[in-house]
Design a protein around this nucleic acid. Sequence first.
RNA 1: UGACCCGUGGUGUAAUUGGCAACACGUCUGAUUUUGGUUCAGAAGAGUCCAGGUUCGAGCCCUGGCGGGUCAACCA
Length: 562
Amino acid sequence: MTEKKEETSEKRSLNFVEAIVEEDLRSGRDQGKVHTRFPPEPNGYLHIGHAKAICLDFGIAEQHGGKCNLRFDDTNPVKEDVEYVDSIKEDIKWLGFDWEEREYYTSDYFGKLYDFAVELIKKGLAYVDDQSSEEMASQKGTPTEPGSHSPFRERSAEENLDLFQRMNTGEFPEGSRVLRAKIDMASSNMHMRDPVIYRIIFHPHHRTGDRWKVYPMYDFAHGQSDFFEGITHSLCTLEFEVHRPLYDWLVEHLKADDYRPRQTEFNRLNLSYTVLSKRVLLNLVKEGHVNGWDDPRMPTISGLRRRGYTPESIRNFNDSIGYTKVMATNDVGLLEFAIREELNKRAPRVMGVLDPLKLIITNYPEGKTEEMETINNPEDESMGSRTIPFSREVYIERGDFMEDPPRKFFRLGPGREVRLKSAYIIKCEDYKKDEQGNITEVYCTYDEATRSGGPEAGRKVKGTLHWVSAKDAIEAEVRLYDRLFNDPDPAGHKDKNPADFLNPDSLRVITGYVEPSLKEAKPLDHFQFQRLGYFNVDPDTTPGKLVFNRTVTLRDNWAKRG
RNA sequence: UGACCCGUGGUGUAAUUGGCAACACGUCUGAUUUUGGUUCAGAAGAGUCCAGGUUCGAGCCCUGGCGGGUCAACCA
């Protein structure tokens, strides 16, 4: 009975890509094989949008006993660099995916691709065009009007062959000639109007150096590379939909058996208050709006990692948003939910005070220190407990005391009682202000019987405060992040630079006091500073200097009820 | 005024071969809590872009509209 219930509850609906793959499996397509690939161009760092593609490409293969290749789509030497190759590999591994030994480069296929181009020329399906890009553009027509033929369209195969070979020896300057596929200048699909498939570039390639002077275009290289690798399902984003006829046309002319890779498009990730464009992200880095690709405010994988996001949370986020063909914008709150959900389970609770106010317990003996036991994580008993020092003078959060508290304020105020977490119930007897009227010190008395675990520990008070012992606390640099942009769609404004919408308060650096146990914290360890949010230790941390990043705040109903 | 793709609560996704629209986030109640967190209980919120048609029955099929996206780089 219960078994049946579990079965049905575990049954989750397939996204449309999974449905296609499973249908292919049922129908025996590709001998029951599933082989995908993740094909980044090494021209920038991976971001959360790439993570969505990675989860699909590798995930689909994993689910169906297939494989997923990593392929660097390096057909444009001008924009690419090994720096990016390394970071991409690191990020994919960190996300928890493994391409095993299948690390490929489109540049590995330059020879085969060249041979295929020659074959097309021989078949009369490609020709060398001597016109400028402007001239070719003017002949291209518009989406509603057909284009016209290039004067070079009917060159003989021999002449084309000769010219193409000489293009690759460096005999002709960049931009002087291209190789085009001869398809249909009147096609309603602009991509079929004799697309350029090879161009001359002298810039050395990061892997092949100056061996080639002629480089294939994306459209020419991609489907063929899929074909060479035996890819069954070539998954890409929606904007490539109109490229598919060209993809199919080229693959068709490679003809081998009845095997054809098939391109399927899914929706790219859009996130509110976030920009996911390598070009814009590169500008943010170059113009110094952020401190590099791994700045914790960046939506890059490396930025999210440094911010305290975990691979698990990113994968869960991807599962929750799904894959469709709908142009969608996901609420960035969903990503925040994913990390809160995970860190709630895993992050130890520790005490920290970011905006300290000194609280003196007047009836507590001077010079005395007690070790108070406190549980590391109420969500997980197995994480055990630790002790934290308590003494006469502690710091509390400045916001936890109000001289004239409103009705629903549960924390400290004149004459009020409140519990110091894991310690005693205290009562506010007095407080001191400076000339400007700022509270400088709060004086309380404590009730020894209310010690945590003590005889009157069960007494109810309105609120619980977090604290650190003033003489024992250690200082830490704390970096508080807010959204980088203050517009829900920073890239969606015509004629405006996304940088115009930068949030000036996206980073606030303060010095806080944290409990002494944190001296042992290691980079990327995460903690919940109770009531202040989830934090992780930044790699900038060195033996003498503790640095925390706030990954995300806690859900805060108090602020909303205000 | 072309081709292709898309149109389900505020947001993102579901809905076996057509069978009285489900889930998550968010929002709002209430309970518990030595975190205003967590957890638990509950509520509101769409009748599926519009109009026809087929059918006993349409979010799913057909026709026609409307709306949005992509495409005219020697970028990917």
